[in-house]
């Protein structure tokens, strides 16, 4: 029992590793701050394109969404960071993460927005257009505010997934939280830094998933 505690909950080692882990935590937050807004915007673009009156645009969007929902995000990340250099395009680990996350997240967020938009009845568009609002004004002021509200739990839930997935960036040696913790683990031969990292993820995500549950309950009533 004591050996287990020593291996996973060694407070001294956690303290020792804390500078590098906290720096990793900072990088994870930075990564989230970049990839989540990019995914939300990209997803919106995908959703609007998937409802385009132009058939070719709709087709391309369907292929895009299917493709990037089917490819494992880790495979995509390795492909971007290791594959692009063969095409003479050099990307930093950070850029590789951003690009692969944009592709993956846009597909997922896009489907969520789209189901939200489709949940709004045609009467709303009728009313809006009959008062002279253009199609894009109708989307911006009438449809989207309602659509986003309807799918808010799904958007938040997907965002939680994205936060967790940022740990994939460790694979391409981007020094985010998990990467930093694993470094510390390999130096100290002790798993406590990983525990530390897990606690940090928990600290950030727990309030969010709690909020999510409450929101889902509220919307069911």
């Amino acid at each position: 029992m004591d050996a287990l505690l020593q291996q996973f909950f060694n407070f001294d080692i956690m303290m020792q590793a804390s500078p590098i882990i906290l720096r990793g935590f900072g990088m994870t937050l930075l990564l989230c701050l970049v990839v989540i807004p990019m995914g939300l915007l990209g997803g919106l673009a995908v959703a609007l394109a998937s409802l385009s009156p132009i058939r070719t645009v709709r087709w391309i969007t369907i292929i895009f969404v299917d493709l990037f929902r089917a490819i494992p995000p880790l495979a995509l990340l390795i492909f971007v960071s290791a594959g692009l250099p063969f095409a003479d395009i050099r990307v930093s680990p950070f850029a590789a993460v951003c690009i692969s996350f944009l592709l993956n997240n846009s597909a997922y967020y896009g489907e969520i927005y789209r189901s939200g938009i489709e949940s709004i009845g045609a009467g709303q568009t009728d009313a809006s257009r009959s008062t002279g609002l253009s199609a894009s004004q109708t989307m911006a002021y009438v449809i989207l505010p309602q659509a986003v509200r309807n799918v808010l739990p799904d958007l938040i839930s997907n965002t939680v997934e994205v936060v967790k997935l940022t740990s994939l960036a460790s694979v391409v040696a981007f020094a985010e939280l998990l990467y930093a913790a694993d470094m510390a683990r390999s130096v100290t031969y002790n798993a406590s830094p990983i525990t530390f990292a897990a606690v940090l993820y928990l600290l950030v995500l727990w309030p969010v998933v709690r909020l999510l549950s409450r929101l889902e309950n509220k919307m069911q009533n």
Partner: peptide, 8 residues
């Protein structure tokens, strides 16, 4: 009532 007054 205000939406079209404002936006249109």
């Amino acid at each position: 009532v205000m939406l079209a007054l404002r936006k249109v």
